[in-house]
Design a protein around this nucleic acid. Sequence first.
DNA 1: CTGGATCCCTCACGATACTG
DNA 2: CAGTATCGTGAGGGATCCAG
Lengths: 222, 222
Amino acid sequence: MAGRTYGQYCGLARAMELVGERWAMLVVRDLLLGPKRFSELRRGLPRIPTNILSARLRDLEQAAIVQRRILPRPAAAVVYELTSYGKDLKPIVLTLGAWGARSLDDPQPNDSVMADALVLALQATFHPEAARGLEATYELHVGPVVLHARIADGTLDAAEGSLPGADLVLDAGRALKALMAGEISPSEALESGMVRITGKPDLLARFGDLFRLAPAPSRRPS
Amino acid sequence: MAGRTYGQYCGLARAMELVGERWAMLVVRDLLLGPKRFSELRRGLPRIPTNILSARLRDLEQAAIVQRRILPRPAAAVVYELTSYGKDLKPIVLTLGAWGARSLDDPQPNDSVMADALVLALQATFHPEAARGLEATYELHVGPVVLHARIADGTLDAAEGSLPGADLVLDAGRALKALMAGEISPSEALESGMVRITGKPDLLARFGDLFRLAPAPSRRPS
DNA sequence: CTGGATCCCTCACGATACTG
DNA sequence: CAGTATCGTGAGGGATCCAG
């Protein structure tokens, strides 16, 4: 006993006991976008063993972070959703995700690109001040994933799926991150063929301002 | 290989690969208050095996989160300090700590109470607006630990150790959290004997406003 | 004394198979 | 579809030992 606790009277230690175990944060991440069923969670976490997913859901439920709910009818299915306490993790998950994204390098061939992660990445890096007075809709293609973003006067609405009639359709392989981190300019991105667009080209220039990621960490200095 | 990665192209997954392993976050926490030597870290993390501490420091160094530095002279000792990328974790660690503190119940007899954790807890819960126009100094006693806080016009300076001449000396067993979460009123805390003070009593009332923690999660509702 | 390295043991995790 | 049962492996825990 006491094997999995840190033995400290400390909020951070407690937090890591609650959501620090492997996969737990990613389960929370997927539930941030709404209630999900067991198999939907599996789909969003392709490498998770089912017994681990079971165990995490049980732990999170016991910690009052997740809540099981029986769908009324006619479904009669079980869904998992975040409690209010669980939803309070949202700013943390977003900020932590933006921090981690900075040291993300190009995806391995085996890496999966999940729509939910990209939707949250947009939310995490969205810069409301850069969107003042702007009304625009984007459709993004990243590998096999399609998502969209509506910007209306400082607010963002992002979700999976396409958006017919979007002002700009952006196919960004994985230069998306480079664009958001300011590592390449929009014109460079276009000329090198790393991104392809259809629609209003000036919206590409604004994209990097709307969704801004801090630069990657450097090896040397403090 | 690839056993410890999540196989997702996702900032959060990357973040958990970097700081999600056991003890890693707590090492970062302790380094947030300044460079520390190996043995100082051990002292702040009483239950960590030394091989794990070694391994974590190596991992964090390789991830450009921590940096080894040789102290000039006359010490010639090794210290570990956060890089700029590591310091960027501070708001995350503080917020996550405040979140976790909400589900902290009374400390187990074996739990250690670390000064660093309390200092960061003060920083995490500090409410600058509540400190407008206030100039005050506190000395806090929590179990065997003594720390202090200086408040001057909206800013907080907290550190370990006593502060002779503090405006209010507060000995709060562990009713400290209840006070910060608004679970008990200052007068209740005094009358029940859960906290003892010497100094200006009205500063006790302000304490709960200066350092405010959200209420504990409830079991039932969403 | 600091800053680790080494050994062994245990348990949580991971892969797979199986069940209501 | 929604998990549980089984079992092997490797990371974590704890003690001890060693070099500068």
